[in-house]
Design a binder for these strands. Structure first.
Ligand SMILES: [Mn+2]
Ligand SMILES: [Mn+2]
Ligand SMILES: [Zn+2]
Ligand SMILES: [Zn+2]
Lengths: 141, 141
DNA sequence: GTTGCAATTGAAAACGAATATCAATAGTAT
DNA sequence: ATACTATTGATATTCGTTTTCAATTGCAAC
């Protein structure tokens, strides 16, 4: 059993929810992906693996995985939303290429620290943030 | 004539578009607002002023004002989207209070500089960015 | 000012991602 | 094994936004 499964089982148990085969299948597939994906991507890939899990269940399970802290939803300008697993990864932010759609990840410690400082100055209790840099990637200048 | 109107007229002229009474009315009202507003807010306020401008035209005109650089759309987690005029204002980012919905504006020069630096390191041509800090405001701790 | 023509408008229909409904199914505690 | 209730899939619904299209109107050329 992978760590993410243990974490998900604990989360569901504490909430009085059930660990179903659909939820396990979605968790394992999401943990196997190393890109940013849309709900439809995930749904099609599960069907190709022979699993017939409904659209609704994919949405519902992703909401649980987000609440559990295993998955993150990216605030895309254009729908549909993109998701990625963050369990076992350090925090990062994103650059979106406006031409080719490429998503570049980065982490910058000074930006993270200044965010903390700005929040403190405004007596704002920060629980999270998202920073998106828009523009054109190396190939698309 | 206010500066924003001059800018909008030039923009429309260059694109071969027309300066209509609906577009003027929307521009003037948007410039008179000093809060972040939803499309429906704007639409209702225009109706209260006796102007019967359709929902569709409000959407269409906001898109033009964004392209023109007079208005900015905020990436809200939850729909509907919020807008604000940015013409004549210096750049700022936002904090969203998760409890009361308050939007706090801030500007932090070091964060802006580090963003530039990060983009350069990835040979990424930055055209813009959105930074949103989520959490609880002073009153909502 | 008049004319001609393409851009614009409003009303309504269409769109589409996300959510809600609900009867059948399946996980879990006893 | 049983009882209870969370969960599921199919479907319908929601709602912000976009599209459609015939009537209107800005605007430039006479
Ligand atoms: Mn990422
Ligand atoms: Mn603002
Ligand atoms: Zn690119
Ligand atoms: Zn608050």
């Amino acid at each position: 059993m992978i760590d993410a499964e243990r974490k998900f089982r604990e989360y569901l148990s504490e909430k009085g929810l059930r660990f179903t085969s659909e939820r396990l299948a979605i968790l394992l597939h999401v943990m196997s992906l190393h890109e940013h994906f849309a709900v439809d991507d995930l749904h099609h890939q599960l069907r190709q693996k022979g699993l017939s899990i409904s659209h609704a269940t994919v949405f519902r399970t992703l909401a649980l995985l987000i609440d559990c802290g295993i998955v993150q939803k990216l605030p895309c300008e254009k729908m549909p939303a993109r998701y990625e697993h963050i369990f076992g990864h350090v925090h990062h932010d994103h650059m979106f290429c406006l031409r080719c759609g490429r998503i570049i990840e980065f982490h910058n410690a000074p930006i993270e620290r200044w965010q903390q400082k700005v929040a403190e100055e405004h007596r704002f209790q920060m629980t999270g943030h998202h920073l998106i840099i828009r523009g054109y990637c190396e190939k698309c200048h």
